[in-house]
Amino acid sequence: MSKIRTSLLAAAAAAGALALAAPPALSAATPEAQSPIAASPYLYNGWGEPPSPSEVMSATGITSFTLSFINSDGTCNPAWDGTRPLDGQDAATIEEIRAAGGDVVPSIGGYSGTKLSTPCADAQALAGAYQEVIDAYGLKAIDVDVEADEFNSKASRDEVVEALKIVEENNPGLLTVVTFPTTTTGPNANGEDMFAKAAEIGADVDVWTQMPFDFNGTDMAQDTINATEGLKEALKSAFGYSDAEAYARSGISSMNGKTDVEGELVDQAAFQQMADYAEQNALGRFTFWSVNRDRPCNGGDPSTCSGIDQQPWDFTEIVAGFQS
């Protein structure tokens, strides 16, 4: 998601991949928990002094989180950061969130690490790795965060889209999100190619979510709106959606505070403008990277704070207002 975490992920990867036994399935989401897709800020157990999710829920009213990141353990097996087993620390986090009445969306991929599409031989094998995650946690939704080499490789993009079609067919009702980089005017050729592949094979991705940051934005609210309008038009072109359908399949995943690009900054006012736009147009998803950073710095490093003047959980509270 953000290059800020690259060095931390490299250190985690150096710890070595763990052999995974089949984890026991966690309890399914509580019946009162709504779809976790629409408003689920990213929470990352691998860095940045992750806060207690139940405490954040109590303070803000947020009910869902996107937990990151699941990657390859060196083979076609999923592990958190490629090192933490599915039945470990992150499973405990999921239980904590569900015990508080919420739910989760595991995010598969991200900026760093070995993506599952690399060692998994084909779409069927990749779908099997996704299925292992779905079964482990009794999921309602998954997010596949397609970035870096995976986003730049047509073979990898195609494999991801084909695998998502398989898991959708095998898990009726499962919600799927694809998250990917953008330009200030909308998807680039790689993004448009993903849409074309999905339309060609009938992969019914629920929400295509752009990351409007690290893209040399100058007016982050307006650039994000422009990028999302470009996304909406690209989805209409690829799938034949109406405006309303295309907005419902569009998502925004911003970054709070200072981004990885010098001078690029998302403050609370800009983020609220994005949220208002998302609400007015009934977007399918509005989120940000990350809850770990949704705090004032007080001398902390960029993995633990936003770099701007704020109160704890300012951005999470705005996302909570988008819950439906």
Rank of each mutant, 00 (worst) to 15 (best):
K3G: 11
A11C: 10
A14Y: 10
A15K: 12
G16P: 03
A22R: 13
A25Y: 11
T30C: 07
P31L: 13
A39P: 12
L43E: 02
N45G: 14
P53K: 08
M57Q: 08
S58I: 03
S58C: 00
A59S: 12
I62F: 04
T66G: 02
T66K: 00
L67S: 02
S68C: 15
N71Y: 08
N71M: 11
N77V: 10
P78W: 04
A79W: 01
R84N: 05
P85G: 08
L86V: 15
D90P: 04
T93V: 13
I97V: 15
S107N: 02
I108F: 07
Y111L: 12
T114D: 13
K115E: 13
T118I: 14
A121G: 11
A123L: 05
A123N: 04
Q124K: 10
A127Y: 05
A127T: 03
G128Y: 08
Q131Y: 09
E132M: 15
E132P: 07
I134Q: 03
D135C: 11
A136L: 06
A136S: 12
Y137N: 04
L139A: 08
D149I: 00
S153L: 08
A155C: 07
V160N: 04
V161L: 06
L164D: 05
I166A: 02
I166C: 05
L174P: 01
L175W: 00
L175I: 02
T176P: 07
V177C: 04
V178Y: 06
T179A: 13
F180H: 03
T183Y: 04
K197Q: 14
K197E: 13
E200G: 11
I201N: 01
A203V: 06
A203N: 09
V205K: 01
V207T: 00
V207C: 06
Q210I: 15
F213P: 02
G217E: 06
D219W: 00
A221P: 03
Q222S: 14
D223H: 04
T224R: 10
I225W: 13
I225H: 08
A227H: 09
E229N: 12
G230T: 08
K236T: 07
G240R: 07
I252D: 06
S253Y: 00
S254T: 08
T259A: 11
V261K: 01
E264Q: 14
E264S: 09
D267G: 08
Q280H: 04
Q280F: 01
A282E: 13
G284L: 05
F288A: 10
S290N: 00
R295L: 12
P296L: 05
C297A: 03
C297M: 08
S303A: 14
C305K: 06
D309R: 04
T316F: 06
V319K: 03
F322C: 09
